[in-house]
Every structure is written in structure tokens, then in C-alpha cells.
Design a protein around this nucleic acid. Structure first.
Length: 512
DNA sequence: TTCCGACAGTGGGGTCGCAAT
DNA sequence: ATTGCGACCCCACTATCGGAA
């Protein structure tokens, strides 16, 4: 298949907002694709590369290269050339990669160049990722969409399912079963604002500690242990202590779902930054493991002794987990049978926070494991802090926010009367707020670099955030975690905004 | 007709690894 | 040694489509 065809379809998909039309366009494309094209076409459409990380970013794509007039590149050509670029390492590699990329871009037409840049910098934005592609694939092959979706969850990737489907037809879906050693997309949680809201919604449920660590899926098949992240990357080599744990558990064939977290001597959680740094270290793992050991905490069992547990109710899966994993390695939990158990569930949340954890996840006891979905049967509850901060600047938005001032620079009052920047946020804004702030901030503008509009610090905005973390980037030495806009406070003056001092006092554990 | 679940988009900060400076 | 880039951890929230109620 020609890259030009892919680029054109991608543009057409982006141009329509109707999901049914997107699905139809993709179905048509899949019908025309060779089975060999599919492992490339599918990830390209979702803005991914089959090779995973290639080390090609905006820097390598900068500068104009004359475009070809006639399309000649096939998707397989492009894939092979990108593999070649990714394989270049060592001294002088930057220049060689540059040369190869310029060569590739010169072989592409203008439309193809645009698609390639989008692909390599993560800006495909056509309003169709894997979920829409699943629908398109079902339409193209006549397989039921639900069956395709399930096969994708179990295979952990759409492209392998697509390839099998297009080569062998709907019957190929039967080959995708839960397999120990092959990662499954993990189930995710929605948010709830309170424990009572979550319990009322779910009925009989477990209230479990939410640990601020790294999600892991642990597979053991005899002597073979594999560990995967939320995005199904294999991190087995980075967590030797988890492999030891897997070998000591009672069963010999299982898939468990859990979290790893670094704890201090008292069993209190270390900061997320420490856990993430540890899990991210892959060069000298032994040293990293000595200075920041991590502990696993499991909360679900997907497969035990060759039995697929995904469709069992959570209560039964947890019983299997309890058979395999001793108490200290299972997440702490409390059971709630209905609204009458809301008070003890609230106490459990309070105790969890007291122990230094993030919050709780409330899980319906009768729900199956919805792999790869943000199931409504898991609800997380975390405390929210708010602050009144001053807008110092704003950045021009991209994509659907083009022409709108989007990303706000936030400041708190410092001791000397100036404002100390604490971070940025683009979250929580409605379209109406975006329109309003674009107008208002331009009235307050003192400078526009084309990217950042600096304003007089006069506008107060209420910001919600999850906590404070250390920062080397911002002057106060701290930054807000997951900051989002709640509302503008036109009733407040900058002199009434919160101060750095009170913020640090509220979070003594991270104060510099 | 209204409601609601699922999805995509919009990017945030931090840390690590690697190559270049 | 330091800096810049890319990858990948964590993540909240809104808008929209289209099926369910």
C-alpha cells in the first residue's frame, strides 16, 4: 500500500466528526490492505510506530526538505527505512540519522511529509485511535466488534489481531486466549468525588488502598517470570526483587495485577518521584535496587493454574488471589455491603491517607475484569486540594485549541510581593472559559512571543491539585501535581491570592 | 427525547539514558 | 560535567458521538 493512500485516508478521517463515517473509511482501507501491510498501517493510523521507540523527534524533522512530486513510497518502504534510522547508534549517529531522515522526507510528497511528521512527533490527531479501528476492522471482515475488542485485550495489541483477521477471517479470533507470559491490557478506574458516591453507585464493593506507585502485571509460568507495565512494556529486568517474590508464591502458573511502590523503614510510602526513578533505572539495576527497594502489592488475579478468571466476579478472583498471595503482599481493603457501610468505608479512607497513601479505589464485587477499559466498576477517590493563584502568562493552544490561549502559567504570592511560578495547567477548562480567557488575557498582555503571552498578574484563578512535588524547574522548589482549573475568581484581587509560604506549610513533607 | 458510557484530545512534571557540547 | 532530546512513568478533565433508557 502506498503511503499516499494512508495519508489521504487519515486526512479524510480527521475531516469528519462522525464516528460511523470514520469507521467506514477505515474499513475501506483495511479491505484493500495486504495482511503484511496491516502491522504497519494500524499503528500508523493511531500515531504509533511498530518499532516502539526510535529516537526520532521534532529536532530530526526540522528544516525544509524539497518534496517529491509523485507518490512512490509504500508503507513497507517507510517502515524499513525507519527501522534503519532507529538502528544507528554511537558517536556521529545524530548526523547519520539526520541524513537518512532527510533522504526519506525527500522521497515523500508534501501530503506524505505532513503525515510522516505528525506520525513521528505524535500529532496524528484524526479522532480515531484503536477503538475506532476495531470497529472498522469488524466492518471490513464481518467479525462481531465485541469479539474483535476482546481479542485485542487478550493479545495486548490491535495489529496482531488485525493481521490474523485479514489473513484467516473471523475464525482467527478463537486463537486469542488469555496466555500466561503474554500481557493483557490492564483494567483502569474512573474517578468519584467521595467514598459515599462510589459506594452508592456500586453497591456491594471492596474499598482498597490506592498506592502511588507503578502498575505491574506479573506473569509466572514455571521458572519463567515476566513483568509488564500499564502500557505493556516488559520491565522484568528492572525489578529483580519482584521475580524472587513470584518464585516464592504458592502457584507456578498465574497472572497477577498489582502495584510496586518504594517504602521507607516504617512502611510508609516514599514519594512517587523516588518510586518512578527506581523503576525507570535500567543500567545499574542492582545499585538502584539496593538504595530504593520496591515492594509489590497485589489486588487482582487474572489467571491461576491455567484457568482464565477474567469473566469471574471480582469476589471470586480475589478469593483466588488470597489463596496464592499472603496477606502482607495483598492490598489492604475493607468490604462494604451497601450504603449502611459508608461510615466505616470513610474511616478506611481516612486511615489510608493517615498511612501516607493516595486514596482508595472502590470496586464492585460482582464485576468481571474489563481488560483495557476504564470500567465503571472501579472508582478511585482521592482528596483534592485547592488554591487561589494568579495567572502570569498563557500559551497558545494546539489542535482544537488553535487560536485560543490555553496553557496557563500559575503563580503564588512570594514574600517580597512578587509572584513565584508553581507550574502550568491546561486542564479543566470549558470551551466558554477558553474563549473568555483568550479575550481577557489579551487585554492584560504585556508581551506576545508568538508562543507565550505574558500578562499583568491581575487575574485570580481557583486551581485544584493532587499534591505538591519537588521541582528543580520552579523558583519555590516545588510544583503542583495534576493542577486543573476550577473557576476564575474575579471577586478576588491578586493581593488575596495564596502565598508560597502557606502552601509549603500545608505540605511540610516536600518543603525545601 | 434525554441520558450516559466510551472515546479522543489536550497537554502537565519528573526521571532516566544517550549523544553532543 | 553539563545540556538537550526522546521515551515513558504518573495523571484530570471536557467535548462529542451514538446507543440505551
Amino acid at each position: 500500500m502506498l503511503l499516499a493512500r494512508l495519508a489521504r485516508v487519515s486526512q479524510e478521517v480527521a475531516a469528519t466528526s462522525a464516528r460511523s463515517r470514520k469507521t467506514a473509511l477505515l474499513a475501506e482501507l483495511f479491505r484493500d490492505a495486504d495482511a503484511d501491510d496491516v502491522p504497519i498501517v494500524i499503528p500508523y493510523l493511531a500515531g504509533r510506530l511498530p518499532q516502539g521507540r526510535l529516537g526520532i523527534g521534532w529536532k530530526l524533522l526540522s528544516g525544509p526538505v524539497p518534496a517529491a512530486i509523485e507518490p512512490s513510497l509504500t508503507v513497507r518502504d517507510v517502515d524499513a527505512r525507519l527501522t534503519e534510522v532507529g538502528a544507528v547508534t554511537g558517536a556521529g549517529s545524530q548526523a547519520e540519522r539526520r541524513r537518512l531522515m532527510d533522504e526519506l522526507r525527500a522521497a515523500a510528497t508534501e501530503d506524505e511529509q505532513r503525515f510522516l511528521s505528525g506520525l513521528l512527533t505524535g500529532e496524528v490527531r484524526q479522532g480515531a485511535l484503536d477503538a475506532v479501528a476495531v470497529e472498522g476492522l469488524a466492518e471490513a471482515t464481518g467479525a462481531p466488534a465485541a469479539d474483535v475488542r476482546r481479542a485485542v485485550m487478550l493479545a495486548g495489541s490491535l495489529q496482531t489481531v488485525a493481521q490474523a483477521l485479514l489473513a484467516d477471517g473471523p475464525g482467527a479470533l478463537d486463537d486469542f486466549r488469555l496466555t500466561v507470559g503474554r500481557p493483557v491490557l490492564p483494567m483502569l478506574a474512573h474517578s468519584a468525588t467521595s467514598v459515599s458516591e462510589a459506594v452508592e453507585k456500586l453497591g456491594a464493593c471492596a474499598v482498597e488502598e490506592k498506592l502511588d506507585g507503578i502498575r505491574v502485571q506479573l506473569h509466572r509460568d514455571g521458572d519463567d517470570v515476566r513483568i509488564y507495565t500499564r502500557t505493556l512494556d516488559d520491565i522484568t529486568d528492572r525489578l529483580p526483587e519482584l521475580t524472587s517474590v513470584a518464585m516464592e508464591l504458592k502457584g507456578t502458573r498465574f497472572i497477577l495485577d498489582g502495584e510496586v511502590i518504594a517504602l521507607d523503614e516504617d512502611g510508609r510510602p516514599r514519594s512517587f518521584q523516588e518510586t518512578a526513578g527506581r523503576v525507570g533505572s535500567r543500567v545499574d539495576v542492582a545499585t538502584a535496587a539496593r538504595s530504593v527497594p520496591v515492594s509489590p502489592v497485589f489486588f487482582d488475579a487474572l489467571s491461576v493454574d491455567g484457568r482464565d478468571l477474567l469473566d469471574l466476579p471480582f469476589a471470586e478472583r480475589h478469593a483466588e488471589l488470597a489463596r496464592l498471595v499472603p496477606e502482607p503482599m495483598r492490598v489492604r481493603r475493607a468490604l462494604a455491603h451497601g450504603p449502611e457501610d459508608i461510615p466505616p468505608a470513610r474511616r478506611f479512607l481516612a486511615e489510608t491517607l493517615e498511612r501516607g497513601h493516595e486514596g482508595v479505589v472502590v470496586k464492585a464485587l460482582d464485576a468481571p475484569y474489563s481488560a483495557g477499559r476504564r470500567g465503571a466498576s472501579w472508582l478511585k477517590v482521592k482528596p483534592v486540594h485547592t488554591l487561589d493563584l494568579v495567572v502570569l502568562a498563557a500559551e497558545w493552544g494546539h489542535g482544537r485549541r488553535t487560536g485560543k490561549l490555553s496553557n496557563l502559567h500559575l503563580g503564588a504570592r512570594a514574600a517580597d510581593g512578587s509572584f513565584a511560578m508553581l507550574g502550568k495547567t491546561f486542564k479543566g477548562m470549558t470551551d466558554a472559559m477558553l474563549a473568555w480567557q483568550t479575550e481577557r488575557l489579551q487585554e492584560l498582555a504585556v508581551e506576545d512571543s508568538g508562543h507565550v503571552v505574558t500578562v499583568r498578574p491581575e487575574l485570580v484563578v481557583e486551581i485544584a491539585y493532587d499534591g505538591l512535588q519537588k521541582s528543580t524547574r520552579y523558583p519555590a522548589g516545588v510544583t503542583l501535581r495534576f493542577a486543573r482549573v476550577v473557576r476564575y475568581r474575579e471577586d478576588k484581587t491578586p493581593a488575596e491570592a495564596d502565598t508560597v509560604e502557606t502552601l509549603l506549610a500545608a505540605h511540610p513533607e516536600v518543603a525545601p
